[in-house]
């Protein structure tokens, strides 16, 4: 799907407002200054998504995902390089990890990452839906680690036979004196993407 400059700008602004709201909520939870920005948004067919994400396909990635439904349906997947995200989580929730064994530590890390991912995805999706006059319902979050092709394949498993597209938001997260690059992907059928873009066009026409 080809977007013109204004449509790309509008999608990027929606993503920036959504993730800035998420940063506000995260800062309250973690008592730290958090910034999240979206410098770039792309829309690509599913078969190009792994390449378009510009992440090492062999590197381990930590991913939190949530399905969404409403006028548009799909799955939102938030991904960060595994080691970066673990270091960040340790810096943010470090005090609660003191004295924990290796297994407990991993459990706390996963829980914390799922909660952080849940806040980012839900806030982001809620703002995008509100600004486009849509209603969105989110599933509970799931968490997985793996390489990029495995993660995308698993999350696309239920979409066999459907033409899928991905809206990719390149994200920059700054927290606990660290900066990490991540990706938020909205994996949706072509029909659902069209519904979302129809709403976007309606918004732009109203201005």
């Amino acid at each position: 799907m080809e977007l013109d400059e204004l449509e790309r700008d509008a999608l990027r602004e929606l993503a920036n407002v959504g993730l800035s709201r998420a940063a506000t909520q995260l800062s309250e939870l973690l008592n730290d200054h958090i910034e999240m920005t979206v410098p770039l948004v792309q829309v690509v067919p599913y078969d190009q998504v792994t390449q378009a994400l510009q992440l090492d396909p062999h590197a381990m990635v930590a991913a939190v995902w949530q399905s969404f439904s409403g006028q548009s349906e799909g799955t939102s997947i938030l991904m960060f390089p595994s080691e970066d995200s673990k270091r960040l989580v340790r810096a943010l929730v470090g005090p609660s990890m003191l004295g924990a064994g290796e297994d407990d530590l991993r459990g706390i890390e996963h829980e914390a990452m799922m909660e952080i991912g849940n806040i980012i995805i839900t806030s982001g999706m809620a703002v995008i839906a509100d600004m486009l006059g849509q209603e969105v319902r989110m599933s509970l979050p799931g968490y997985m680690e793996g390489n990029l092709p495995d993660i995308m394949e698993q999350r696309n498993r239920d979409n066999a036979g459907r033409e899928m597209q991905a809206i990719i938001m390149f994200t920059h997260l700054k927290a606990a004196q660290r900066e990490i690059e991540g990706r938020m992907v909205m994996l949706m059928s072509v029909d659902s993407v069209q519904v979302l873009f129809d709403r976007l066009h309606k918004l732009l026409r109203s201005l």
């Binding site: 959504g18 800062s27 200054h33």
Partner: peptide, 9 residues
């Protein structure tokens, strides 16, 4: 003008 209304900002 911002959606990032955390205390520090």
């Amino acid at each position: 003008l911002t959606a990032n209304t955390q205390r520090t900002v």
